[in-house]
């Protein structure tokens, strides 16, 4: 439904002020020179010139710890109740296009067979305002996985800074129009423009289709071992990843009262697949690294038709031993 508008930075501030009272706004915030998605209530608190946050915004849909239900014991029986649904809409303000596109994957994944109730409710109340990238770093590789620094995929509104104080606004969805309607007079209509000269240059680092042919066909190979010797199995790549969806289910509390929760998990962990008997289908780290790469580029394509990597580069930036998914894919492209 794309239509195009302009808004000045000053008016963007006013737009924020119009949205803020009725919505929960999550936005990147600078904390000790690093950036994190946090609830914000003042426009000044939003970082508009960051490259990437430490963790993705997936937690607005799929929180690190998500209560499935609460229980308490009464007269030898249990009462079970569900957490009350969220009332306010959530707006993520200033998410990067790579992260916005991860929401396309996440919604497909969680609503495919069984519609996950918590996630469906959050998705209905979620609005995404993305911000095209002015700058990128060496870890960024969105252009290698079918995206670009100004992609509107997954966004409701996309903002691109075209002059010092003017943003070009693409209204991507009905939900985006709903947001505009909070204060439509702050926006000025315009024609479609070529955004390419206003955005970061992210060189393409691999040809995903070519690499996929080898990733898909090579299972037993010393390449997987050699490439993963440095992996500690710490799982930070999965925690930082906007499309990693694996989780564990645990009870928090006593036999009398508590909650059953869903927590992020990672296929990098030994315990992730270990049977009660001690048998482990993926006993060594290279098999777990192989699973991660094959899941992102092969299995999720087979199951959902989508690569589950958006090129945000967080796994590369956060790995304590400099494991690098781009280098792995390059190795397989070159086989």
């Amino acid at each position: 439904m794309n239509n195009y508008k302009l808004i000045t930075k000053q008016n963007l501030h006013s737009f924020f002020d119009a949205l803020q009272p009725k919505n929960t706004i999550i936005a990147p915030k600078e904390i000790n020179k690093k950036y994190y998605f946090k609830p914000v209530d003042k426009f000044e608190d939003i970082a508009l010139d960051y490259i990437q946050t430490v963790l993705s915004a997936k937690s607005v849909l799929f929180p690190r710890s998500d209560t499935l239900f609460n229980y308490h014991r009464a007269d030898g029986d249990y009462n079970i109740d569900e957490p009350s649904p969220i009332e306010k809409n959530t707006i993520v303000f200033g998410m990067k296009p790579c992260d916005a596109s991860s929401f396309v994957y996440l919604s497909n994944f969680f609503l495919k067979d069984y519609q996950d109730k918590n996630i469906k409710e959050r998705l209905e109340k979620l609005y995404i305002i993305s911000l095209s990238c002015k700058e990128a770093d060496n870890a960024c590789f969105c252009t290698s996985v079918g995206s670009n620094p100004a992609s509107t995929k997954g966004s409701d509104l996309n903002l691109t800074l075209i002059e010092n104080d003017t943003y070009y606004v693409e209204v991507v969805t009905e939900k985006g129009q709903e947001l505009i309607n909070y204060s439509a007079d702050l926006f000025q209509d315009t024609k479609e423009i070529d955004k390419s000269k206003y955005i970061a240059n992210v060189p393409q680092k691999f040809d995903v289709e070519q690499a996929k042919q080898n990733i898909d066909s090579i299972f037993e190979s010393p390449l997987w071992v050699k490439d993963s010797l440095a992996c500690l199995g710490c799982g930070i790549c999965a925690y930082a990843c906007p499309t990693c969806t694996c989780f564990d289910i645990q009870d928090i509390g006593s036999q009398f009262n508590g909650s059953r929760v869903r927590n992020w998990d990672s296929c990098a962990f030994d315990l992730f697949t270990k049977h009660a008997s001690g048998h482990n289908p993926r006993p060594v780290q290279s098999q777990r690294w192989r699973n991660r790469i094959k899941h992102k580029f092969e299995y999720s394509v087979e199951n959902l038709g989508l690569i589950s990597c958006v090129g945000c580069g967080r796994c590369i930036r956060s790995c304590p031993t400099s494991m690098n998914i781009v280098k792995t894919v390059q190795i397989f492209q070159g086989v």
Binding site: D248, F272, T273, H295
Partner: peptide, 8 residues
């Protein structure tokens, strides 16, 4: 239900 990833 095919979501948590453990048995894949």
């Amino acid at each position: 239900i095919g979501q948590c990833g453990h048995c894949a």
